[in-house]
Design a protein around this nucleic acid. Structure first.
Length: 255
DNA sequence: AACACCCTCAACCGCACCGCC
DNA sequence: CGGCGGTGCGGTTGAGGGTGT
């Protein structure tokens, strides 16, 4: 007995989006903002369900999306974050402005996973593969439970650096500010996770570790992470003005 | 040229979470 | 407090392009 479907599927279009549909959706969102995804397709004149519209916007149409392949440095950072966070793709994606959780998830499944396996590292545990066992259980990298709990990965916290990308979330945050100002409505929080949450998590992870061991090295690590966090936040503010200008140019172009 | 196979990634599905009533 | 609706998230699928034979 599952939930009701998100929408009445009768008469709704599925599959790849056309340019015309894209245009309708972009134009509607830039003009009106997003109050409720369910109402978006009706108001925008689309034969799609709200969920589909949301996904299309988030994964493809958002103006702050970064196109192109992920760099090796980004891959390395994904690996580090995955070691700490597990399959929490949206969380990982929040460290990469302009990248979507779907993009990172796909990249992980199609490339990084294979790369790690070639290196003899289990993509799930990030530990060296026990080759004999691995041969008997070739699917073990697939046994990734839904809603992986971060506790399984915290032991690797010391291997992971803090988010060092100065653009962290800034692009989407500033974009949302524009839309909020324009529409006066609340945008979905999906692509604008709060900075304080990220900071809090980073500190909490360290705090958990230091509470467990009460070692002076962890206290030092905590201080170091907090310093890094401060630098990272400073750099966000320094970039914000430039991004706001870019967003403004984009909005003028579509209006 | 034709076919098979592989790879990528956009899109979908279903569940979990959260806020509201 | 429980039901419900809206949304977010992670897993999975399948179309389409690329490559090998």
């Amino acid at each position: 007995m599952g939930r009701q479907p998100c929408c009445d599927r009768v008469g709704l279009k599925r599959g790849p989006w056309t340019i015309e549909e894209d245009h309708k959706l972009v134009h509607f969102i830039l003009s009106n903002g997003i109050q409720c995804w369910r109402t978006v397709p009706k108001l925008a004149g689309l034969q799609r369900c709200g969920k589909s519209c949301r996904l299309r916007w988030i994964n493809y149409l958002r103006p702050d999306l970064k196109r192109g392949a992920l760099s090796e440095a980004e891959e390395d950072q994904i690996i580090q974050l995955h070691a700490r966070l597990g399959n929490r793709w949206s969380k990982i994606a929040s460290y990469f402005p302009g990248r979507t959780d779907n993009e990172i998830k796909n990249h992980w499944n199609t490339r990084i996973k294979k790369r790690l396996q070639l290196m003899g590292i289990d993509p799930l545990t990030h530990q060296p593969i026990d080759m004999e066992k691995y041969q008997h259980e070739p699917d073990q990298t697939e046994k990734c439970d839904k809603r992986n709990e971060p506790e399984n990965f915290i032991e690797n916290t010391n291997d992971v650096s803090l988010p060092n990308n100065p653009h962290h979330n800034m692009l989407s945050d500033s974009f949302n500010v524009d839309l909020l100002n324009k529409s006066g409505n609340t945008m979905s929080t999906c692509y604008s996770p709060s900075i304080s949450l990220e900071a809090e998590e980073s500190i909490n992870l360290s705090t958990t570790t230091s509470a467990a061991t009460e070692s002076s090295s962890n206290v030092a690590a905590l201080t170091e992470e907090q310093d890094s966090l401060q630098q990272w936040m400073d750099s966000i503010f320094s970039c914000a003005v430039n991004q706001l200008e870019e967003d403004l140019i984009f909005l003028r172009k579509y209006n």
